[in-house]
Design a binder for these strands. Structure first.
Length: 867
RNA sequence: GCCGAAGUGGCGGAACAGGCAGACGCGUCGGUCUCAAACACCGAUGGCCGCAAGGUCGUGCGGGUUCAAGUCCCGCCUUCGGCACCA
């Protein structure tokens, strides 16, 4: 590949910064002066601006989760982003055209909270933070392509959120429905984090939180539930796939129709559809439970029960879903005083409501089978409802219908059969389930169905700082989409919060009062804004053409660059962000806007850096670690390398700077090896002499072998993101070379080659010091400057890595007792002879003949077994 | 409760695919350099016994398979992360 610096739009006139002349007494590595100098040079040369149309090199799209501009770049950001930068540099050295963009996820609650609390403008607050974080991000020395930067709070970005919304609306993928929110009379809708305490009060005014039903917008992600379960072709961590699969929660079963009976207060005949995964237990259904929110509750409730029911419904609505679903709680519920007919046996069963049944799952109604469901069992036991066993292993005698049970029989034995189930008795359980549904289906009382835990995506937010939803409400025309040519619907720059959490857009007359695009009459603008997960569901498409004015996505570039080759970011986004992004991509593909149906081919979740107290870093805990101080003291390269060296990347852990000195020492050692090969250290008695028994040629071979073996292993470690062992192996190589420094072998070509390889291998991880040393080597050799980061990644020399001899550990009865050095190509027979002839082994055998001699792993180890 | 990940020296961690446990680094101890200190460099460093050679124990706990187990199997314990009565 080219040895010129990466392509830029400008003609290249590399003006290498004049390297300091190499003194006899060499200076130590001074990061504070070297690093900013190279960062400025890279920027001047536009070294990391990616030419997305480059016809020659294969594209590699590397994406890292864009940060929220909280205003502080902490050590956790470095932990994600600097190894990602090393990936970029590694791929670039393989001749790939790497695109590593960056941007800011700049809408959201924190800006608004700051606005309410400190009376600052959310936009000013956000933009100030972005400014600060840009500076901090640059101090990493990462190769972000800043030309591609995306700021989601810019109209240039969010107008396309609105455009997508309109396309979804046309395609029937967006719809408006009632949905409850947590509500405070003073501060309006509350996010989960704004509800505090067990008594659930408002974070600002302390008022008790209420539930309130609002008309809100949904995106129909459930339409894609089945496709989202398919991860074919994705190289993703298994736990993420498992988490998404559970989140979608597909279950197969049937809907069964129960019909309400008449009484003196209502005519009956209402259909109650229940969802069950166990139609085989239908004969054991002894009551019905509805979610308290079920639409028929009001209509069916008997007057005598009305007061109790209403109290219960109010209570249930005040509980969080987590509370309602908590297993620790006692079962609660109320009979509503109505009944329904079990279609399978005509039995009249009572209808209850209970908060353990959710209106959002299935049909919001269940048939309770206490004999075969633990929750129903607990409920029946508490309220004295009948329990009837209808499933039992064929191997035991069928129990009587009313035989007492101490617990629900839920376990699936292979020989489970239906019992007490009329003509279905004796059917094996799975066949029984099928037969019952088929039979009921004929009468119109059942259908096979699939239900998902996944719910449609509620995107409406009653907040200012987000993308306005582009619809208008007209007296005459109803819900009217804003036409494309009127986009973007601009967020006003200044709003008055009046010290309250209520969405200030609702009070902004200029925003709210608009005209209907259809009839031209006065109309009301939608004041809800979009969930910020919308922003992050397509930002990587926009990076390809951030300023494109006539479309959201550049289709040509999408064809060329999509899907993202590698995505890096935290595991906390395992479900929501990654699932929404997959949904968006599929929907956009169906709308013909993008080509691919999956956004991220390969995903890596790095671990999380915790505070030194082992807790998640947060401002409120005061355990946020600022890297600036460390960077000032040790330099960016040292901090980068230290973060990589700490442990496996997917592990994370509590932050502690202990040990960073070791990494700094290593970089200084590299500096010394490269610039002062002939110096000697006073502390080393052996300094200046080759290791005992080695001549110049042996030293040469040893150095070559060490360097090339390191290339072999380190290349694999870069590919697998195993940074900690990668750094360890580079340290080993440096230590090995250190042994030859100051000896005659330091003049050998092998020494110089080893230093060259060491620098190349270190370059992606520690880009500044290697660039500096590289420039000095070139200058010393009288060659023109070129960046080390445009060099090719080294290949190892097969002949150099092969050893002539190897050491074989010898075990007797599985314990290492001896070692022997043998020629590399030795045969098994010869090896065995040598081993058995060893004095130490003969001693241990004491005249006995070995039972077996095992040569393990092609003679890597010998085990002599004697009993 | 369910799902997922993990438990290895004083500490962070290493160990391909069952084959020398503890790579690399920190810390500690000893040394060289220095008037001295810092820096740098060299050496030692799992526990116990031993002057040494060497022995012995040792990867959360208890069993097992194997010539050989940190690694595989069975049964537990602990920690972290996620999910939450999903019918």
């Amino acid at each position: 590949m080219t040895t010129r610096p990466a392509r830029t739009d400008d003609p290249i006139t590399p003006e290498p910064p004049a390297p300091a002349p190499v003194d006899r007494r060499i200076e130590r590595y001074d990061a504070a002066s070297v690093e900013p100098r190279w960062q400025a040079t890279w920027e001047d040369l536009r070294l990391y601006h990616t030419d997305l149309h480059d016809p020659d090199r294969p594209p590699f799209y590397l994406l890292t989760m864009y940060p929220y501009p909280s205003g502080d770049l902490h050590i956790g950001h470095w932990y994600i982003k600097t190894p990602t930068d090393a990936i970029a540099r590694f791929h670039r050295m393989h001749g790939e055209n790497v695109f590593l963009p960056i941007g800011f996820d700049s809408f959201g609650l924190p800006a608004e909270n700051a606005a309410i609390k400190n009376k600052v403008n959310p936009r000013d607050w956000t933009m100030r933070n972005i400014e600060k974080m840009r500076r901090q991000l640059r101090s990493m020395g990462a190769t972000f392509d800043w030309d591609a930067e995306v700021v989601t709070a810019d109209p240039e970005y969010y107008r396309w959120n609105q455009w997508f919304f309109l396309r979804f609306l046309e395609a029937g993928l967006a719809e408006r429905r009632m949905s409850p929110v947590d509500w405070c009379p003073n501060d309006g809708t509350l996010a989960r984090e704004q509800v505090e305490g067990v008594d659930r009060h408002c974070w600002r005014c302390g008022a008790p939180v209420q539930k309130r039903d609002l008309e809100q917008w949904f995106l129909k992600i459930t339409k894609y539930a089945d496709e989202l379960l398919d991860f074919t072709g994705l190289d993703w961590p298994e736990p993420v796939k498992v988490a998404q699969t559970n989140w979608i929660g597909r279950s197969e079963g049937a809907e069964i129709v129960f019909t309400t009976t008449a009484d003196q207060h209502q005519p009956g005949g209402d259909e109650l559809r229940v969802f069950t995964t166990r139609p085989d237990t239908l004969f054991g259904a002894t009551f019905i439970v509805l979610a308290p929110e079920h639409p028929l509750v009001d209509r069916l409730t008997h007057p005598a029960q009305r007061a109790a029911v209403e109290t219960y419904v109010t209570q249930a609505r005040r509980r969080t879903e987590i509370e309602r679903l908590s297993t620790d709680r006692d079962k609660t519920g109320v009979a509503i005083g109505a009944h329904a007919i079990n279609p399978v046996n005509g039995e009249r069963v009572p209808i209850w409501i209970a908060d353990y049944v959710l209106s959002t799952y299935g049909t919001g109604a269940i048939m309770a089978v206490p004999a075969h469901d633990e929750r129903d069992f607990a409920f029946a036991a508490k309220f004295g409802l009948p329990i009837r066993q209808v499933i039992a292993p064929a191997s035991v005698e069928a129990p009587a219908p009313d035989a007492p049970m101490s617990e629900a029989y839920v376990a699936h034995a292979d020989d489970d059969v239906l019992v007490n189930s009329a003509r279905f008795s004796g059917f094996p359980a799975p066949e029984g389930a099928r037969a019952i549904v088929l039979w009921l289906e004929d009468q119109g009382n059942a259908t096979f169905t699939v239900t998902y835990r996944l719910r449609d995506w509620l995107i409406s937010r009653q907040r200012y700082w987000g993308t306005p939803i582009p619809v208008v409400y007209c007296e005459r025309d109803g819900i009217v989409p804003v036409p494309d040519d009127r986009l973007p619907v601009l967020l006003p720059d200044h709003v008055d919060y009046q010290g309250s959490g209520v969405n200030p857009l609702t009070r902004d007359a200029a925003f709210v009062n608009t005209t209907c695009p259809k009839c031209g009459e006065p109309a009301r603008a939608e004041t809800d804004t979009m969930d910020t997960f919308i922003d992050s569901s397509w930002y990587w498409f926009r990076y390809l053409s951030p300023h494109k004015a006539d479309g959201a996505v550049d289709r040509v570039l999408d064809e060329r660059w999509g899907p993202v080759d590698q995505y890096t970011g935290g595991a906390e986004h395992a479900v929501m962000h990654l699932l929404y992004s997959r949904f968006f991509t599929k929907a956009l593909a169906d709308l013909g806007i993008v080509r691919e149906r999956e956004p991220f081919r390969r995903l890596f979740n790095q671990g999380q850096i915790l505070g030194s107290d082992g807790e998640r870093m947060s401002k409120s805990r005061g355990n946020v670690q600022d890297p600036d101080e460390l960077v000032k003291r040790y330099g960016a390269d040292t901090v980068r390398l230290f973060l990589m060296f700490m442990g496996p990347w997917d592990q994370g852990g509590p932050w502690s700077p202990t040990g960073i000195g070791g990494v700094a020492r290593f970089l200084n050692r590299v500096w010394t090896l490269a610039l002062d090969p002939h110096g000697v250290e006073p502390g080393d008695a052996e300094a200046g002499h080759l290791p005992a028994g080695q001549d110049y040629a042996a030293a040469d071979r040893t150095m070559r072998m060490a360097a090339h073996r390191t290339v072999r292993i380190v290349t694999e470690e870069y590919e697998g993101f195993r940074w900690n062992t990668m750094v360890a192996h580079l340290m080993e190589l440096a230590n090995a070379l250190m042994r030859y420094r100051g000896t005659e072998a330091a003049s050998a070509p092998a020494y110089d080659e080893a230093v060259r390889l060491l620098l190349l291998m270190l370059a992606p991880a520690a880009p500044h010091i290697t660039e500096e040393l590289w420039s000095r080597r070139l200058a010393a050799a009288g060659e023109p400057w070129r960046s080390i980061h445009t060099e090719r990644w080294p290949a190892y020399d097969e002949s150099a890595v092969a050893a002539e001899e190897r050491e074989v550990p010898i075990q007797v009865n599985g314990k290492v007792r001896d070692k022997v050095t043998v020629p590399a190509g030795i045969s098994d027979v010869e090896l065995e002879q040598i081993v058995l002839a060893r004095e130490r082994i003969r001693e241990l055998l004491a005249g006995r003949t070995p039972d077996r001699v095992i040569l393990a792993g092609g003679g890597r180890l010998v085990n002599v077994v004697v009993r």
